[in-house]
Amino acid sequence: MFKAKIKVTLKDAVLDPQGKAVEGALHSLKYVHTSHVRIGKYIEMKIREKDEKKAAEQVEEMCKKLLANPVIEKFEYELVK
């Protein structure tokens, strides 16, 4: 059994309206040295699989098929026992 911790974020070239709004709010709170705020999704799940390589393959596949939209998003993940 593995736990997958998956991060889905917008590709660097894609504008992030949420990130922009949060950055504006941070600046109005006087955190003026903040910039490049980007907001993404965090997904975690358990995978019933003994082999780490196979578990990783499944996560890759899930990300490409459903969890991330490859047109605008990228993903990274880690597997924990």
């Binding site: 894609v14 504008l15 309206p17 949420q18 709004a21 939209n69 047109v71 605008i72």
Partner: peptide
């Protein structure tokens, strides 16, 4: 249609949220 790849591109949250 964009999610299924029948049309190109993607639709994001509106600029002004």
């Amino acid at each position: 249609l964009t999610e299924s790849g029948l049309l190109p591109g993607a639709l994001q949250r509106n600029r002004d949220l």
